[in-house]
Simulated scan of single mutants.
Amino acid sequence: MITAALTFAGVAMLINMTPGLDTLLVLRTSISDGRTGGLAAALGILTGCLAWGLATAVGLTAVLTASHLAYDTLRICGAAYLAWLGLSALWRAWRKPMPDEAPAVERPTVPDPRGQWAAFRAGLGTNLLNPKAGVFYMSLLPQFMPDDAPVFGTTMLFTAIDLIELALWYWLVSGAASALGERIKRPGFRRRMEQITGVAFLGFATNLLVERP
Results as ranks from 00 to 15, higher is better:
residue 35 R to V: 07
residue 130 N to K: 01
residue 26 V to L: 07
residue 151 V to D: 11
residue 2 I to G: 13
residue 13 M to K: 00
residue 26 V to S: 07
residue 83 A to L: 15
residue 154 T to P: 00
residue 28 R to L: 07
residue 90 L to A: 06
residue 103 P to S: 01
residue 160 A to E: 01
residue 81 Y to Q: 10
residue 154 T to C: 04
residue 54 L to V: 15
residue 83 A to C: 14
residue 137 Y to W: 05
residue 82 L to S: 08
residue 140 L to Y: 03
residue 50 L to E: 00
residue 206 T to F: 10
residue 57 A to M: 11
residue 167 A to T: 07
residue 123 G to W: 09
residue 58 V to G: 03
residue 132 K to R: 12
residue 64 L to F: 08
residue 202 L to Y: 01
residue 7 T to A: 11
residue 211 E to M: 15
residue 10 G to A: 12
residue 65 T to I: 12
residue 158 F to K: 01
residue 40 A to G: 04
residue 102 A to Q: 14
residue 32 S to C: 06
residue 207 N to S: 13
residue 52 W to N: 05
residue 139 S to G: 06
residue 197 T to H: 00
residue 135 V to E: 02
residue 110 V to E: 11
residue 99 P to D: 08
residue 201 F to Q: 08
residue 164 I to G: 10
residue 122 A to L: 09
residue 202 L to Q: 02
residue 199 V to W: 02
residue 144 F to G: 06
residue 203 G to Y: 03
residue 155 T to E: 05
residue 94 W to S: 15
residue 172 L to E: 00
residue 160 A to Y: 02
residue 123 G to K: 09
residue 125 G to K: 10
residue 180 L to C: 11
residue 139 S to P: 03
residue 58 V to E: 03
residue 131 P to M: 08
residue 171 W to R: 13
residue 181 G to N: 10
residue 19 P to N: 04
residue 133 A to S: 13
residue 121 R to V: 08
residue 196 I to Y: 00
residue 138 M to R: 10
residue 77 C to V: 13
residue 108 P to D: 12
residue 170 Y to E: 07
residue 106 E to G: 07
residue 73 T to F: 05
residue 112 D to M: 09
residue 53 G to C: 08
residue 46 L to I: 13
residue 146 P to M: 08
residue 149 A to P: 07
residue 117 W to Y: 09
residue 188 G to N: 06
residue 12 A to C: 11
residue 111 P to Y: 04
residue 1 M to N: 10
residue 193 M to N: 10
residue 179 A to W: 09
residue 22 D to A: 11
residue 88 S to I: 00
residue 88 S to P: 00
residue 103 P to M: 05
residue 197 T to W: 04
residue 150 P to I: 00
residue 148 D to S: 13
residue 80 A to P: 05
residue 125 G to R: 08
residue 135 V to G: 04
residue 13 M to I: 10
residue 197 T to I: 10
residue 76 I to D: 05
residue 120 F to P: 08
residue 107 R to H: 03
residue 101 E to D: 14
residue 15 I to W: 00
residue 14 L to I: 15
residue 20 G to C: 10
residue 161 I to T: 05
